[in-house]
Simulated scan of single mutants.
Amino acid sequence: MTAALLYTRAVSVFDGVLRAVPADRQAAPTPCAGWDVRALVNHVVGEDLWAAELLAGRTIAGVGTAFDGDLLGDAPLETWSVAAEAAGKALADVADDAVVALSAGPTPVDEYLRQLAADHLVHAWDLATAAGTNLRLDSDLVAAVSRWFAPVEDAYRVHGMIGPRPLVPADAEPQELLLAMFGRSEALAAAERFGAAFDTRDVNAVMAAMTGDCVFESTAPPGGERHSGADAVRAAWQRFFAEAGEHRFTTEETIVAGDRVVVRWRYDWPAGHVRGVDLLRVRGGLVAEKLAYVKG
């Protein structure tokens, strides 16, 4: 895949995700520490406004502070569209052997476009995660970005451009591995999405966060119950929410190890409380197994 095509397709993925983000999620946190949805979109918009200028041959000094601060104003989508279109037009006019004046020094346009593509693709996942969606990235894009990033991953991490790589299984799926390379944990995102859905007592949202062949082991006395398959698990949630009354789960600690997530929680109801743990197994960004254990 050419760098230009990779970039264009990654921009399209980001565009589709952004347009699907609910209006009330602008302040939702993203997997990028310190960035909510609006801050992340502002970053990507700025990146494409810069791309339009740099691909046209301008320098960083020449652009100056034009793209500092808030770029979105009252029309984030419209601003994004203008930025993406400007970058696309500049790309159409640039020569394949052109060199771009980046802060790191003169950089071949092919390399610059692959950097941009990676940022748009990973941030598309960040954005979807902030919106509560399990985004499955195109396998060709995942493969292309992974091939480009593998030789430079360590250098990016040394310079503080990405976070620590979380542990992933030896047989991790390509998307899970790519996200880990960029310091993201798909398992943690899945656990948090499941927890958010559970807190709303929305059975449909809970099931949307689980696989079709999911398993749930409950803490129902005396020895717990095991529910296998989406229909059985859905029925278990329906009974639980119908019978629970006034209750509240509070997450006290979350530990991620590969495709496993341990969630330590406290469960309160008017007459008392208990503490327990969930052992979650994640597959494809969804909870495949939830094993619950409780201590009175």
Rank of each mutant, 00 (worst) to 15 (best):
T2C: 15
L5W: 09
R9S: 08
A10E: 00
V11M: 05
F14P: 01
V17W: 03
A20R: 15
P22Q: 12
R25V: 08
Q26L: 15
P29M: 10
T30W: 02
P31K: 04
A33T: 14
W35A: 09
N42R: 07
V45Q: 01
E47M: 14
E53P: 03
I60V: 14
I60D: 13
A61N: 12
G62W: 06
T65V: 13
L71R: 03
W80Q: 00
E85Q: 13
A86K: 07
D93Y: 10
V94L: 08
D97S: 13
A98L: 10
V99H: 09
A104E: 15
G105Y: 08
P106D: 11
T107K: 08
D110R: 11
L113P: 03
R114N: 07
W125I: 07
D126C: 04
L127N: 02
L127R: 04
A130H: 04
G132Y: 02
T133H: 14
N134H: 14
R136M: 13
R136I: 14
S139P: 09
V145A: 06
V145M: 05
S146L: 10
W148H: 15
F149S: 11
P151C: 12
A155C: 14
Y156M: 14
Y156T: 11
R157P: 04
M161R: 13
I162K: 05
G163I: 05
P164S: 12
R165Y: 07
P166C: 08
V168N: 01
Q175N: 07
Q175F: 01
E176S: 12
L177C: 12
G183A: 06
R184Q: 06
A187D: 00
A189H: 04
A191M: 03
E192V: 09
R193T: 05
R193V: 03
D199E: 15
R201Y: 03
N204I: 09
A205P: 06
M207T: 05
A208L: 09
A208K: 07
V215M: 08
P221M: 00
P222K: 01
G223C: 13
G223W: 10
D231V: 11
A232D: 06
V233L: 00
R234H: 06
A235W: 09
F241Q: 01
F241A: 02
A242N: 07
E243Y: 09
R248T: 09
V256L: 08
R260L: 11
W265Q: 03
Y267G: 01
A271Q: 13
A271R: 10
D278K: 04
R281Y: 05
R283I: 09
A288T: 07
K290V: 01
K290G: 00
L291P: 00
